[in-house]
């Protein structure tokens, strides 16, 4: 019961600001509305007992990405709270895509027999288990991801310097 209540509250916490994000005419408000949405997702992680992922979610997404977004918005012309239009002539296409996606999802939901079988305990999501997984089974993926991030960082610096 408590879990269901938490799920409902968190879903509202995610969905209502998410609507504001895509409809608000003020771009700073849109960016700020991302914060409750991301924190709501954190709540889901906590419900799923993935505390480490939850902590990282707040640290990276709510604490850093949003701040970076706001920083960039405020340094550019939109920072004055310019009125922006969030819709363009692609509405019919978007609606079609959304309807198809909803249809597919409903199809999947109705074809699945609930609850999906749950045998034994969920895997341990502790920081230790995640670290071990990164350094053993997924070391290649981990290193390649780091390399991609490094390359993008270097690329950003090169692009920024060229303007000087």
């Amino acid at each position: 019961m408590g879990e269901f209540a938490a799920f409902t509250i968190l879903s509202l916490l995610i969905l209502i600001p998410a609507v504001v994000v895509v409809t608000s005419k003020n771009i700073v408000r849109s960016a700020l509305s991302l914060v409750p949405t991301l924190l709501g997702v954190t709540g889901f992680y906590v419900l799923l007992q993935a505390e480490f992922v939850a902590g990282i979610q707040v640290l990276i997404y709510a604490g850093a990405i949003t701040v970076l977004l706001l920083f960039v918005i405020m340094l550019t012309e939109g920072g004055a709270g310019l009125q922006v239009r969030q819709v363009n002539e692609q509405i019919p296409l978007g609606v079609t895509a959304a309807v198809w996606l909803a249809f597919l999802l409903l199809l999947v939901f109705s074809r699945t027999t609930w609850p999906v079988a749950q045998r034994g305990n969920p895997p341990a999501y502790s920081a230790l288990a995640i670290g071990n997984a990164f350094m053993t089974d997924y070391v290649l993926v981990f290193e390649v991801t780091s390399l991609v991030l490094l390359v993008s960082l270097v690329g950003a610096i090169i692009i920024a310097r060229r303007e000087e």
Binding site: L32, E51, G55, I56, V58, L59, G63, S126, A127
Partner: peptide, 17 residues
């Protein structure tokens, strides 16, 4: 909580918002 210091850093980073 078992991620105490990560939690602390996360909450401290919310101030800037």
């Amino acid at each position: 909580i078992n991620i105490g210091v990560v939690y602390f850093a996360a909450m401290a980073s919310l101030t800037v918002i």
